[in-house]
Lab assay of single mutants.
Amino acid sequence: LGPKYVGLWDFKSRTDEELSFRAGDVFHVARKEEQWWWATLLDEAGGAVAQGYVPHNYLAERE
């Protein structure tokens, strides 16, 4: 699936296409579209919880 990303700060969605998340949440990014990335929010087991657009500057690649 490629690298995983972690949320740096809490983010509250403003549209139906955006995905709310908390700092520390883990994502798989499917598409990078300039300022907004289409991402899947993952649970602790790595299963998909939700999908939506997230601001790229709120995520960091997980080491």
Results as ranks from 00 to 15, higher is better:
52 G>P: 02
26 V>N: 07
43 D>Y: 06
58 Y>W: 06
61 E>R: 11
45 A>Q: 14
40 T>C: 12
61 E>P: 15
45 A>V: 11
48 A>P: 12
36 W>G: 08
46 G>Q: 05
36 W>I: 06
20 S>W: 06
16 D>M: 09
3 P>H: 10
26 V>A: 06
43 D>M: 04
24 G>Y: 03
58 Y>A: 10
53 Y>R: 10
46 G>L: 06
42 L>F: 06
6 V>K: 04
46 G>E: 06
19 L>F: 05
17 E>C: 15
26 V>R: 06
26 V>Q: 09
17 E>Q: 14
17 E>V: 11
34 E>K: 11
37 W>K: 00
41 L>Y: 02
3 P>L: 11
27 F>G: 00
50 A>Q: 08
20 S>E: 05
61 E>S: 09
14 R>T: 14
13 S>M: 05
62 R>L: 15
56 H>P: 13
37 W>G: 00
7 G>E: 02
7 G>P: 03
44 E>A: 12
33 E>K: 07
52 G>C: 07
33 E>F: 12
48 A>R: 08
61 E>A: 11
54 V>P: 00
7 G>I: 07
57 N>E: 10
21 F>K: 00
34 E>I: 09
52 G>D: 01
62 R>M: 15
14 R>P: 05
11 F>V: 02
15 T>G: 12
6 V>G: 02
60 A>C: 11
46 G>W: 05
44 E>T: 09
53 Y>H: 03
21 F>P: 01
14 R>W: 08
24 G>R: 02
46 G>F: 07
47 G>T: 14
41 L>V: 04
7 G>Q: 03
20 S>Q: 04
29 V>M: 01
25 D>Q: 07
33 E>D: 10
15 T>S: 13
63 E>W: 12
52 G>V: 04
51 Q>A: 11
63 E>T: 13
31 R>P: 03
5 Y>M: 02
16 D>C: 11
54 V>I: 05
1 L>Q: 13
60 A>R: 13
29 V>W: 05
2 G>T: 13
13 S>K: 11
60 A>F: 09
17 E>D: 13
28 H>P: 01
52 G>K: 04
25 D>G: 05
34 E>R: 11
17 E>T: 12
23 A>K: 13
9 W>D: 03
17 E>F: 13
4 K>D: 10
59 L>F: 04
9 W>K: 11
58 Y>S: 06
5 Y>C: 06
36 W>Y: 12
49 V>E: 03
43 D>I: 05
42 L>K: 00
57 N>K: 08
37 W>S: 01
23 A>Y: 05
33 E>Q: 08
17 E>M: 14
21 F>M: 02
25 D>T: 05
6 V>D: 04
59 L>N: 02
11 F>C: 07
60 A>P: 03
4 K>P: 06
25 D>V: 06
37 W>V: 05
18 E>G: 11
45 A>D: 14
36 W>R: 15
5 Y>A: 01
27 F>A: 00
17 E>L: 14
56 H>V: 11
12 K>E: 14
58 Y>H: 04
41 L>D: 00
36 W>P: 00
59 L>W: 04
45 A>F: 14
31 R>Y: 12
36 W>C: 06
45 A>L: 12
51 Q>W: 10
47 G>D: 14
40 T>S: 08
43 D>P: 00
43 D>K: 02
53 Y>V: 03
53 Y>L: 07
62 R>A: 15
58 Y>E: 00
44 E>H: 10
48 A>W: 09
50 A>N: 06
6 V>W: 06
36 W>H: 06
2 G>D: 11
31 R>M: 08
10 D>R: 05
15 T>W: 08
58 Y>V: 03
10 D>W: 08
19 L>R: 00
41 L>A: 01
40 T>Q: 07
58 Y>P: 02
15 T>E: 07
55 P>C: 08
39 A>S: 04
61 E>H: 08
12 K>H: 13
14 R>L: 10
18 E>W: 14
49 V>M: 08
10 D>K: 04
13 S>W: 05
60 A>H: 09
30 A>E: 15
39 A>T: 02
50 A>S: 08
7 G>H: 04
28 H>E: 12
43 D>F: 06
12 K>D: 13
9 W>C: 15
30 A>C: 13
51 Q>H: 12
25 D>F: 07
32 K>S: 07
52 G>W: 07
21 F>N: 00
24 G>A: 02
39 A>W: 05
44 E>R: 08
5 Y>N: 00
45 A>T: 13
12 K>R: 11
19 L>D: 01
17 E>W: 13
46 G>K: 03
38 W>S: 00
31 R>T: 07
3 P>T: 12
47 G>W: 10
45 A>K: 14
40 T>E: 08
42 L>M: 06
37 W>H: 01
24 G>C: 08
16 D>L: 10
14 R>G: 11
44 E>F: 09
14 R>E: 12
24 G>W: 04
37 W>I: 04
43 D>Q: 04
5 Y>E: 00
35 Q>S: 11
48 A>G: 08
50 A>G: 09
23 A>D: 01
35 Q>H: 15
25 D>Y: 06
42 L>P: 00
7 G>M: 05
58 Y>F: 11
12 K>F: 13
12 K>G: 05
49 V>N: 04
41 L>E: 00
14 R>S: 14
4 K>G: 07
41 L>H: 01
18 E>D: 04
55 P>I: 10
8 L>K: 09
8 L>I: 11
55 P>D: 05
61 E>T: 10
54 V>H: 03
34 E>F: 09
44 E>K: 10
37 W>C: 05
47 G>E: 15
10 D>P: 07
56 H>C: 15
30 A>R: 08
54 V>F: 03
43 D>C: 02
55 P>Q: 04
37 W>E: 00
11 F>D: 01
23 A>N: 04
38 W>L: 08
20 S>L: 04
10 D>G: 05
51 Q>N: 08
47 G>V: 14
22 R>W: 07
10 D>Q: 07
27 F>Q: 00
20 S>F: 04
22 R>V: 09
7 G>N: 02
52 G>F: 05
33 E>G: 14
25 D>N: 07
42 L>W: 03
7 G>W: 06
17 E>N: 14
54 V>G: 02
49 V>S: 06
25 D>S: 08
20 S>I: 04
6 V>P: 03
30 A>T: 15
34 E>W: 08
63 E>M: 12
19 L>S: 00
10 D>V: 08
34 E>M: 10
33 E>L: 09
15 T>I: 08
18 E>N: 07
25 D>M: 06
28 H>D: 08
2 G>R: 13
62 R>K: 14
8 L>R: 07
6 V>H: 04
3 P>G: 10
30 A>G: 12
45 A>N: 15
12 K>C: 14
16 D>K: 11
8 L>N: 03
59 L>A: 02
54 V>R: 02
46 G>N: 06
